[in-house]
């Protein structure tokens, strides 16, 4: 009746360590090489910085305009994270209601679909007219983009619990709350985490797009507005610097949601479990 516990030998452990290190070293090395080539080509062909600035010029701009760009970055981060937060809370609450009641879902799901399929660029000007506070208007725009993936995945996830486990909970007279806590919510987690990764990126896209729309009126101070402003002034290095910071925010959100997904699912779900060969 006993079974051996699988134990990694030292070779396997070393292999795992090397594998982990390579996951970081290889992409970093590739980026450094790509930047080196970029720098070399720009210098070799003496490309003017108002066409394509060298990475070193972008870095200089980042240092020089750092304080003002950081303020803009904080604005974009705040906007993105708040919209993601509200999308998550709204998606979970509405998704749970939809999962519990087909009638409510049939009534309100079309509204969610309409919000999803209508381009945010088309809705943003209207929202900016109706909502006086620019930040709130931008927040609504970013929320619209990030909300749908969370909602639809939560509904699917809550309905995906194994039917035998559902029977087991019935057999043991689980209360609705117990069923939600111990069965439905964990079953929905992989779907929810996948949606969160997508929604994280979409929230940033929503924030940037909304800023572009609002930024033309000179109302906001986010990174997207700085990109627009720099393009008007033909300050290409600053455009690249702001773009770089937008990418940094996107990467940080991706890494954070990936880490969260691994932390939550790493012990049991196929999508995050690392297999030893």
């Amino acid at each position: 009746m006993t079974t051996e516990t699988p134990v990694l030998n030292s070779d396997q452990q070393r292999h795992a360590r090397v594998d982990r290190a390579m996951r970081i070293v290889l992409p970093v090395l590739t980026i450094v090489v790509a930047l080196g080539i970029w720098e070399g080509l720009v210098r070799y062909y003496q490309v003017p910085k108002y066409l394509i600035p060298a990475p070193s010029v972008i870095a200089e701009t980042l240092v020089k305009d750092g304080p003002s760009l950081m303020g803009s970055m904080w604005f974009t981060i705040k906007l993105t994270l708040l919209s993601l937060f509200f999308a998550t809370v709204g998606g979970i609450i509405l998704g749970s209601i939809f999962a519990l009641s087909r009638t409510v879902e049939m009534c309100f799901f079309p509204f969610a679909v309409i919000l999803q399929v209508t381009p945010v660029v088309a809705i943003a000007p209207l929202i900016l007219i109706y909502v006086r506070d620019t930040f709130s208007a931008l927040l609504i725009c970013a929320w619209i983009v990030a909300f749908f993936p969370i909602l639809s995945s939560t509904v699917i996830g809550l309905r995906s619990a194994d039917h035998n486990l559902r029977d087991l909970f019935t057999l043991y007279r689980a209360t609705p709350l117990q069923r939600l806590r111990y069965l439905l919510a964990p079953s929905a987690l992989p779907y929810f985490m996948a949606a969160l990764k997508i929604a994280g990126g979409l929230a940033l896209i929503g924030a940037v797009v909304a800023e572009f729309v609002a930024g033309t009126a000179g109302q906001s101070t986010g990174l997207a507005s700085r990109i627009l402003e720099s393009s008007f002034r033909n300050e290409i290095p600053r455009m690249f610097a702001a773009l770089f910071l937008v990418s940094v925010v996107g990467i940080a959100i991706f890494l954070a949601t990936s880490w969260l997904s691994r932390a939550v699912l790493g012990n049991w779900h196929e999508s995050e479990v690392r297999r030893e060969n």
Binding site: L168, Y182, P186, W268, H269
Partner: peptide
């Protein structure tokens, strides 16, 4: 059950 029907997260 015919399947072990365990909660994979637990």
């Amino acid at each position: 059950f015919q399947e072990p029907t365990l909660m994979p997260w637990a």
